[in-house]
Design a protein around this nucleic acid. Sequence first.
DNA 1: TGTATTTGTATTAGATATAGAACATTTTGC
DNA 2: GCAAAATGTTCTATATCTAATACAAATACA
Lengths: 278, 278
Amino acid sequence: MVAIEPSKTQRLYLLLKEQILKGVLSPGHRLPSEPQLAAQHRLSRVTIRRALEGLEQDGLIRRQPGAGTFVLDARPRKGVVGDLSNMLAHLVAMGRATRAKLLSFSYQPSPPAVSAALKLEDGERVQHSIRVRYIDDTPFSHLTTYVPERIGVTYSEADLASTPLLTLLERSGVVADRASQTVTATLAGPEIAELLQVEIGSPLLSMTRVVYDDHGRGVEYLSALYRPDLHSFQMEMTRTGIGAERRWSPVSSLTRPGSDARPVPGRGTPRRASITPL
Amino acid sequence: MVAIEPSKTQRLYLLLKEQILKGVLSPGHRLPSEPQLAAQHRLSRVTIRRALEGLEQDGLIRRQPGAGTFVLDARPRKGVVGDLSNMLAHLVAMGRATRAKLLSFSYQPSPPAVSAALKLEDGERVQHSIRVRYIDDTPFSHLTTYVPERIGVTYSEADLASTPLLTLLERSGVVADRASQTVTATLAGPEIAELLQVEIGSPLLSMTRVVYDDHGRGVEYLSALYRPDLHSFQMEMTRTGIGAERRWSPVSSLTRPGSDARPVPGRGTPRRASITPL
DNA sequence: TGTATTTGTATTAGATATAGAACATTTTGC
DNA sequence: GCAAAATGTTCTATATCTAATACAAATACA
C-alpha cells in the first residue's frame, strides 16, 4: 500500500464536498440514492451514509426520508475572486474589513530553500513571520514570509501586525521591482487546517512568491496558502503573435468583485490595441 | 464530532509532510526518535511508525536502524515548470514526446455552467470531449472541453485524438482572441486519480479556461487538471504604477524548464514551425 | 569495548471502520 | 390507495486502526 490513505468515508466526504462547493453539483440537484452511490463507489451503504452525515452537518445537503438527498445552496460567497497578485489591494479598495493575526515573529538562520531563492550569502539571517489574514472575520490566507535581516530590522512586530509587508518594505526604501510567483495545490495539515478553518486533508491553493528589488537582489520570500472554496486565481489573456508564434499572453487587468467573475467582452474589460491577424 | 476526521496516522503523516515540504525541517535534519514523537503527539509508537513509513515511501525521509530518521532533500524535481497558458507549446519546443488519449467524444446538451460561461442560447448543444495528455508516457493533464456544436462539427474524433483543440478551431476559421482562466485546487476522485496515477484524495491543480473569439463569442470551455507534484503554474510580474496605484502586473514571458526558471526573452528556446498551444 | 539509544519486529487487546443484510418509515407517482 | 423507492434504524461479522508491551538488531559515543 502506497502512502497513507484517508479512510473511505473521508475520501467520499471530501469528494462530494468538493463537487458541491465547486458547483459541479448545483443547488437543488438530487444526489443518486444511497444504494446507487454505494454501487458507483463500490462502498457499503454504511460508509455512504457516514459521508452524507458529514455533509449534512456542514449544511451542504438536505436529506429527506422517502424523497432523496438534495444539494443546498450553501455556496454563500465565492466572495473574492481575485488576481492573487493584487488581491489585497482589491480588498482594501472594496472597503472590506481586513485584519492580520501575527502568529510568529523572529530572526533566525535562513532555511536552505529560502537562501537559494533570495540568493543570500552563507549564514545570512532572515526575519521570519507567520500571519493569518482575515476578511470580515473569516480566515482568508496563511502567510509565511522571509526577509533578509538587514531589511527585516526596519520594521517591528507591531508594524507587521498592522501593515502589509510589501508596504513596510517600500516604506523602508526598498524598491520592489520584479517578482516570480508559483501556484500549486497542497493538502491542509492539522495546523493549517485549524487556522484556515477547513478539514484536515482539504485542498489548498499554494502560492510562492519571490520579490526582487531593482538591483535583482531578493528582498522577500512569501509562501501563502488560500482556501480554494473561497478564492481562486484568475487571469485574462489575449492571443498575440502570428502564425507559429501565436500564443497567449497575459493582460494586465483588474478583476472586478462579484459572484460572477467572467469577463465582459467589448466593454467592462479594457481592450488594448490588438495585433491585427493576417 | 464535526465532519469526518482523518485517522491519527494520516494526520501525523500530513503534518510531517507539510513541515518537510515547507522547509521547516531542512534536509539532513534528524527527526525526534519514535518514542519521543509518540510522547510529543500522544500517540502510540505503532501510529508513529506507520506515518514514517508513508514518508519513507514518498522519499522524504531516510530511516537508519540505530541511528535515527533523517530528512532527505525533498526538493521536488518538477519536470515541467510551466506557464500553463502556453505549456504545450513549451513542451513541443523542448522536443518532449506528447500524446493524447481520447476518452470520450460526443455531442450533447450543454451543462448549465458551460452554457453560462460560453453565453449559449437555451438548448444549444455542445461537442464534449475528455482527454488525458501524456508526456514521455507519464500522465500530464486531464482535459475536459466543451465547444458549441456549430463549431464542434468542424473536426472529427480522429482530429481531436491527434491535434490540440485550439489548433483545430483556428484551422476552422475561428479567431481565438481572448481567454479568461481560473486556477484552483481540488481533490482527486477515484476516476481522475487512476487516470493521472495519483492517490485518491491527492491535491490537484485545476484550471478552467473560457476562450472567446474576436466577436466576444465563447468558442471553447476547457477544464484541466494537473498533478502539482509534477507541474506548477509560474508567472513573472513587475511592479508598475506610482503611489497608491502601484501594483503588480504580469510580464509576458517564456519560462524555461530547469531549477531556475527565469524568463528568456526572444531566443534560447528553440522554435519550430508547429508550435501549438493547448 | 561497552552502554545507551535508535529502528525493526512481534504479540496482545480493545476500539473503530466497513460490509452486508433485514426491516421500518416517509415520500412519490400511477 | 397502492406499489416503488427513498432515507432511517438496527444488527452481525470481519478487517483495520491504535495502544501497550517486549525484545532483537544496528548504531553512536564515551
